[in-house]
């Protein structure tokens, strides 16, 4: 990838546990995006769902990285209302990396109404702030583990997001690998190689979006 494919773009990146530990997605993604010229504020909140970013919700862990400084948080971590985050950072692109926390992997029935309510609540608030957004869906995991992640549900979740995140543009992480290709530590969270691959693919996919290219300065 040529250097500077994201030059001049101020990104607010929000995510779940994948963005909440240093060896997870937080560090490689932050570094990949900034290497391409973006200014990045990345916030992770373990277990946070879309609706949790409409308010302040306590979560069991989280991380916040801005201007190079990273703060990894334990139980003091919270989400923040998206309106406040946008008002403070004034990003010209919001990137949401969220899906596993809403897939109900351990439940036979998928909670459509709840998921729709949370997703549209978040996308409407972002749209109301007149800020473009991209939603990155979940990646394949390895079946089983303590979260009961499974291929069938993650595929359904990605499809549900694809239909419901507009006006955000959807990036389908399932296209980045084959099921089980990226090794996990618990069925859902990847090892370092997996996160590096996911990060590289997200960065490349973002840079390829015409909407994102239109934001470059």
């Amino acid at each position: 990838m040529a250097a500077g494919t994201l030059a001049g773009i101020a990104m607010l990146v929000l995510g779940e546990s994948h963005l909440s530990l240093p060896g997870y997605l937080m560090n490689p993604l932050y570094e990949d995006l900034t290497t391409q010229g973006a200014t990045v504020h990345a916030i992770g909140a373990c277990g946070a769902t879309a609706g949790d970013w409409l308010k302040t919700v306590e979560v069991p862990c989280g991380a916040d990285r801005f201007k190079g400084d990273t703060v990894f948080k334990g139980r003091a971590a919270t989400t923040s209302p998206i309106k406040e985050l946008i008002a403070k950072d004034k990003p010209n692109l919001v990137v949401i990396i969220l899906g596993d926390t809403m897939a109900s992997y351990d439940n036979e029935s998928f909670p459509r109404a709840w998921a729709w309510q949370g997703i549209t609540g978040l996308t409407k608030e972002i749209a109301a702030m007149q800020t473009p957004c991209v939603w990155v869906g979940p990646a394949w995991g390895t079946p089983g583990g303590k979260y009961f992640k499974n291929d069938k549900r993650v595929e359904f979740m990605a499809g549900f997001l694809e239909k419901n995140v507009a006006p955000c543009v959807f990036i389908d992480s399932l296209k980045f690998s084959k099921p089980g290709q990226w090794a996990t530590v618990d069925g859902q969270h990847f090892n370092q190689a997996g996160y590096q691959a996911w990060s590289a693919n997200i960065t490349k996919a973002l840079a390829a979006l015409p909407m994102v290219q239109g934001l470059k300065k």
């Binding site: 277990g47 992997y105 109404a113």
Partner: peptide
């Protein structure tokens, strides 16, 4: 904080509500 490796476990969280809305 800041010392966890990939092998570290993270707090278990739910991946959805106990009941739909």
């Amino acid at each position: 904080l800041g010392t966890l490796s990939n092998a570290a476990d993270i707090p278990l969280y739910p991946t959805g509500p106990s009941a739909d809305s």
